[in-house]
Design a protein around this nucleic acid. Structure first.
Length: 208
DNA sequence: ACAAGGATTACCT
DNA sequence: GGTAATCCTTGTT
């Protein structure tokens, strides 16, 4: 297994990190040793002073992970039923994060498919399903990520969930737009996605 | 204690 | 294109 991303990566300005994480890979190791890998194709930045950031009104039990050290996971539950995966950025005490909104399966698409739908299909068939991982709630279900992963170190290749480097996405392959599904600071252009990826979330595409 | 709403998705027409 | 599902967090009584 390749080595995990360096913690220093997450000390760069959060908006740059959101852009830089495109093309990097999420690795999920299950207890039985099975591994799933997905390539990040859509992200959003949330920062200090940003009214849409969950930490805007200070620390709470739910958002404490965002105040923790960089390179760790912040998991929040959304609409009461969907888990969303964030990578915490900035030094401890500065609550910023990048929401990972979509991934495309690179390895073991069949297991992601099974986690998501309950059905067992071949790797080839699973790869043809372009929606597995195509949304913040979808990718966490496909990788079986829940509240227990809040605070996990994403820069430790021993973790059940961590990040590794992947194929670079150049600037001309990236679209930048406003963020999705928020009402506050809805005009900040802090969403980034790999323009050509069929796995970018459906709502995201609709926004343009 | 209680009510309101949310960084979404699936299913209906 | 519209809306129900579903439940935790937060702000208010």
């Amino acid at each position: 297994m390749e080595s995990a991303l360096d913690r220093k990566t997450f000390l760069n300005p959060t908006i740059e990190v959101a852009r830089q994480l495109l093309g990097q890979c999420v690795v999920r190791r299950f207890e039985d040793g099975a591994i799933c890998i997905g390539r990040i194709v859509e992200t959003e930045a949330y920062t200090v002073g940003d009214p849409a950031c969950h930490a805007f009104r200070g620390i709470s039990k739910a958002n404490a992970a965002m105040f923790g050290p960089p390179g760790h996971a912040y998991i929040h539950i959304n609409y009461g039923l969907h888990y969303c995966l964030n990578a915490v950025t900035q030094a401890e005490g500065i609550p910023e994060a990048v929401l990972i909104r979509a991934i495309e399966p690179l390895e073991n698409a069949a297991l992601m498919y099974r986690n998501y739908t309950g059905d067992i299909v071949s790797e080839d068939i699973a790869r043809q399903e372009k929606r597995i991982g195509a949304g913040p709630g979808r990718l966490t279900k496909a990788l079986q990520i829940d509240k227990h992963f809040d605070g996990v170190d994403l820069t430790d290749s021993e973790s059940p969930l961590f990040l590794i480097s992947g194929a670079t996405v150049s600037d001309n392959e990236v679209t930048t737009t406003t963020r999705i599904g928020i009402t506050k600071a809805a005009d900040y252009p802090w969403r980034f996605y790999a323009t050509a990826s069929p796995f970018v979330s459906r709502r995201a595409i609709r926004v343009k």
